[in-house]
């Protein structure tokens, strides 16, 4: 598409073969434009992927008598305490992700008002939040790997005691696999979200959307970013709280 703006009217200037019954560009299903709708349906399919992973996690957990206690497994605060601080670090990660969601909404809102400086500022803060979250996750993974968790070994059995460095491998071996797999898949989404945000940030700084007067691209990447936050809400509950 050669036109710079994606308003419905722009299609009438396109070649004849793009008009007619299969063109459909003038129609706005549900009052939304193509890109935003497709983002929603991509997120729907992605949500099914995460649902599949999380529901099978639920099945495995539900059918085991013993399951590692999250308050013991996730009790470190990397860099400060190796154990004894249950859920504090993951609380920080949750807070970072919710805050980055808020700055993302503020960026979308500033986009509606076509305030380039504010969009730049809020997108920058969102990117910082995403990077901070990834850093926290890297620290947490490192800590778990140092404790002996691998994709096929789970050291968090009933006798696991982080204070005295006692590992107990007599526990569901799939726990660490599920933890690394699901938080890793979520982290991969955060990572690609940061990359997409950087691309959009670059466009915002260069004034691409200011020229076209259309900040919908910020809105679309915002949908993706909130989805990542949404998945984290479920990961947080299912892995760390229950």
């Amino acid at each position: 598409m050669a036109t710079t703006t994606l308003t419905p009217q722009s299609h009438s200037s396109e070649p004849k073969d793009l008009q007619g019954p299969w063109q459909g560009g003038d129609v706005l299903p549900f009052g939304s434009r193509y890109g935003k709708l497709m983002m929603w349906f991509f997120l729907l399919s992605d949500a099914f992927t995460f649902s599949g992973l999380l529901v099978s996690y639920g099945l495995l957990r539900y059918s085991h008598e013993y399951w590692p206690n999250p308050e013991k497994v996730f009790s470190s605060f990397p860099g400060i305490a190796d154990y004894g601080w249950p859920l504090v670090f993951v609380g920080l990660m949750t807070f970072i992700l919710i805050m980055s969601s808020v700055t993302m909404v503020l960026a979308v809102d500033a986009g509606h008002k076509r305030d380039q400086n504010k969009v730049t500022l809020y997108l920058f803060l969102t990117i910082l939040g995403g990077i901070a979250f990834l850093g926290c996750q890297a620290a947490e993974w490192t800590h778990m790997i140092m404790e002996g968790a691998t994709l096929s070994r789970n050291p968090f059995g009933p006798n696991f005691d982080p204070a005295n460095h006692v590992l107990d491998f007599n526990s569901p071996q799939v726990f660490a696999q599920l933890f690394f797999g699901i938080t890793g898949f979520h982290g991969a989404h955060v990572f690609s979200g940061v990359i997409i945000l950087l691309v959009i940030f670059n466009n915002v700084v260069k004034g691409v959307y200011q020229r076209t007067g259309d900040y919908e691209m910020v809105e679309k990447v915002g949908l993706y970013w909130h989805f990542v936050d949404l998945v984290w809400v479920f990961v947080f509950t299912l892995f760390y709280l229950i």
Binding site: L28, G31, R33, K36, H112, G213, D214
Partner: peptide, 20 residues
């Protein structure tokens, strides 16, 4: 191309105009 600020980025759909 007419693309007034009041219409916001989403073009002329039903609630574009009074978006904010």
């Amino acid at each position: 191309m007419e693309h007034s600020a009041a219409h916001g980025p989403s073009g002329d759909h039903s609630h574009g105009g009074d978006h904010l």
